[in-house]
């Protein structure tokens, strides 16, 4: 195997990794905010809100991310590709995260809500002090998994020309006429990113487990 290209082209991999990280990070932020909103809509008593959230979640989860990306990119005239990438990824992950959050909240024992309310705690305070902290512990493993999926799936934005790790890897392959080895480098970098994240989430989970 010939990895001599790294010396000359390592900057492509560095810049691509940077773009992939920024894209994933922004998607996580918007995805969690969107997911929280959707899960609250879905668990609310309001039938219209519930219907909208349910339809959105079902549709997004039932269609390929690639098509969603194309629809956003080609559907909105003149949208910058990076913006299109973030929007499409956020729309997609918010639907998955919404379900994770909803399940996490519903998994908290009903007695917890009753005990807090019987002390005289208002509903908002009950969520803040009692339900959300416990739900977070239920949610964390699935959420960490979702973040890892997100980093990997983000490679798809290379098809609309965002210079992420995948795109830049292809560029290096094109310039050097080395078809195989750059892929190994890219795979290794993706693995380092996701492995670090999963280890980080693991230690966070352990720290939250003190009360188990």
């Amino acid at each position: 195997m010939n990895f001599s290209f790294i010396e000359k082209y390592y900057k492509f991999f560095l810049n691509g990794t940077y773009t992939t990280l920024i894209l994933s990070l922004l998607t996580v932020v918007f995805g969690v905010l969107g997911g929280l909103l959707l899960s609250l809509m879905k668990t609310s008593g309001n039938k219209v809100l519930k219907g909208i959230a349910t339809a959105y979640i079902e549709f997004i989860r039932g269609t390929p991310l690639l098509i969603q990306l194309y629809i956003v990119y080609y559907g909105v005239q003149g949208i910058p590709m990076f913006t299109a990438g973030i929007i499409a990824m956020s729309i997609n992950s918010s639907a998955y995260i919404a379900e994770i959050i909803r399940a996490g909240i519903e998994a908290v024992d009903k007695g917890q809500m009753e005990a807090a309310r019987s002390l005289g705690m208002p509903i908002g305070l009950t969520y803040k002090e009692i339900i959300i902290p416990q739900a977070l512990k239920n949610i964390l493993p699935a959420l960490g998994n979702e973040f890892i999926v997100l980093i990997k799936e983000s490679a798809i934005v290379s098809v609309i020309g965002i210079h992420d790790l995948m795109y830049n890897t292809d560029t290096v392959r094109g310039i050097t006429f080395i078809a195989f080895e750059p892929l190994i480098v890219a795979a290794f970098i993706y693995f380092v990113l996701t492995f670090t994240l999963s280890k980080g989430m693991g230690s966070l989970e352990r720290r939250m487990k003190v009360s188990d």
């Binding site: 024992d109 007695g111 917890q112 009753e114 005990a115 019987s118 902290p133 416990q134 009360s211 188990d212």
Partner: peptide
Amino acid sequence: IGMVFQQFNLFPH
């Protein structure tokens, strides 16, 4: 009005 439950319902966290 204090209330005590069959399942205790202490806050585990």
